Simulated assay, not measured.
Amino acid sequence: MIYQGSTAFIGLGIYTFFSGRSQLRAQEAAILKSGTRWGIGARRLGIHGITATLVGLGVYRMVM
């Protein structure tokens, strides 16, 4: 039996991944041009980290 809380976390993680990647792709030129200390790689890592955390929480709620 899958609980609503677990599917909500997993769905939010998947949405965050696709939404974050598309927004990052749209802003990539501006980010590179700005010369900021936090480049594309760090932002991409942040998106992956948030996604992994949310999906992990969903899986945890599913099995516990």
Score class of each variant (00 low, 15 high):
Ala30Val: 08
Leu12Tyr: 01
Leu24Thr: 10
Gly5Lys: 15
Arg37Pro: 00
Gly49Asp: 05
Val63Ala: 06
Gly35Lys: 01
Gly58Pro: 05
Gly11Leu: 13
Gly41Tyr: 01
Phe18His: 09
Ile50Thr: 13
Val59Asn: 02
Leu57Ala: 04
Leu54Trp: 08
Phe18Ile: 13
Arg37Asn: 10
Leu24Ala: 07
Ile31Tyr: 07
Gln27Glu: 14
Thr16Pro: 00
Trp38Glu: 04
Lys33Ala: 15
Gly58His: 06
Met1Ala: 00
Ser34Gln: 05
Arg44Ser: 03
Ser34Arg: 04
Ala26Arg: 10
Ile47His: 09
Trp38Leu: 13
Thr53Met: 14
Phe17Gly: 00
Leu57Tyr: 02
Thr51Trp: 09
Tyr60Phe: 14
Thr51Tyr: 06
Gly5Ala: 13
Gly39Thr: 03
Val55Ile: 15
Ser6Gln: 11
Arg25Lys: 15
Phe18Asn: 05
Leu45Phe: 11
Gln4Pro: 10
Ile2Gly: 10
Ser19His: 10
Leu57Ser: 04
Ser22Leu: 08
Ala26His: 04
Ile31Asp: 01
Ser6Arg: 13
Phe9Met: 14
Ile10Phe: 08
Ala29Arg: 04
Tyr15Pro: 03
Phe9Asp: 05
Val55Ser: 02
Met64Pro: 14
Thr36Asp: 08
Ala42Thr: 13
Met64Ser: 15
Thr7Arg: 15
Tyr3His: 07
Met64Ala: 15
Ile47Asp: 03
Gly35Gln: 00
Ser34Pro: 02
Ser6Lys: 08
Met62Ile: 13
His48Tyr: 15
Gly49Ser: 12
Ala42Trp: 14
Ala8Gly: 04
Gly13Val: 07
Thr7Asp: 08
Ala52Asn: 09
Arg25His: 02
Gly35Cys: 01
Ile2Tyr: 13
Arg61Thr: 11
Ala30Arg: 11
Ser22Met: 09
Ala26Cys: 02
Gly11Val: 07
Gly58Met: 12
Met62Trp: 13
Ile40Pro: 03
Val63Cys: 03
Leu12Pro: 00
Arg43Ile: 10
Gln27Lys: 06
Gln27Asn: 13
Gly11Lys: 06
Ile31Val: 14
Ser19Gly: 01
Gly41His: 11
Gln27Ser: 05
Tyr60His: 09
Gly46Met: 03
Gln4Asp: 08
Thr36Met: 04
Thr16Glu: 08
Leu57Arg: 01
Phe17Asn: 13
Thr51His: 09
Arg44Ala: 07
